[in-house]
């Protein structure tokens, strides 16, 4: 999933301050799972903003709505009457959702309510970890299913740096060394030889370095 966390409440308040009617629009997929932008978070945020504006003796009308996915036109459709009724949309979707809304409603202000972070998983309740950086050329087969591009702090492809100690990365005692995990796993799989071969410089052209990317499925274009 795409993970995100809500922006600080005062930053959000500043963003919506110029508008009289604001639609807080949640997204029921990724950001719901990471507790940043599902209907529960929409409700809390709406309540907090109302309190905050009341305290400032400012009136603001807040409407709440959560749709299944803000990154797909089919679902965005469901928000259109709510969008029409309001001056601005505070989207709690990921950056893709925010932009999809902006694309669909060209004349409406769409504001981001969350900071979109990474592609990850919920490793244990309440803890989300980054797993993939969408490099466009997956090498997980070589690395025993653990991504060094994302999870090694230095993106090393040819083995651990000199800072790896006791299974931890040099940058932080809470971060496991990806290479330690890779070596452990390849040892278990009996594939440690994968690491003996030299891995040439990565082609980053398929990543964001190559410019904004586009995926084309000819067979689905009508």
């Amino acid at each position: 999933m795409i993970t995100a966390s809500q922006k600080p409440i005062n930053e959000i308040a500043e963003l919506v301050e110029p508008y009289k009617k604001v639609l807080i629009l949640g997204c029921g997929t990724c950001v719901k799972t990471c507790f940043a932008g599902g209907e529960d978070e929409v409700a809390v945020l709406a309540s907090v903003l109302r309190l905050k504006f009341k305290k400032m003796a400012r009136s603001i009308e807040i409407e709440e709505l959560t749709i299944e996915r803000q990154c797909e036109n089919e679902f965005i459709q469901e928000a259109s009457s709510g969008v029409d009724r309001n001056d601005a949309i505070l989207s709690l979707a990921c950056g893709a959702g925010v932009q999809a809304m902006a694309k669909r409603f060209a004349k409406k202000v769409v504001l981001p309510g969350v900071n979109t972070s990474f592609i990850g998983i919920q490793e244990s309740p309440g803890i989300f970890t980054e797993e993939c950086s969408g490099c466009g050329n997956c090498g997980l087969a070589t690395f025993g299913g653990i991504c060094p591009v994302t999870r090694c702090s230095k993106k090393l492809l040819n083995g651990p740096c000199g800072g790896s100690q006791k299974g931890l990365c040099e940058i932080d005692p809470d971060t496991p060394c990806a290479w330690h995990l890779i070596i452990e796993r390849l040892t278990t799989l009996g594939q440690l030889d994968n690491l003996k071969t030299y891995i040439p410089p990565k082609n980053w052209n398929t990543s964001l370095s190559g410019g904004p990317r586009k995926l084309i499925r000819e067979d689905h274009i009508i």
């Binding site: 790896s164 100690q165 299974g167 330690h180 070596i183 690491l195 003996k196």
Partner: peptide, 9 residues
Amino acid sequence: ADPFEYRVI
């Protein structure tokens, strides 16, 4: 540094 066994590889 660790893992020690890998250092020679």
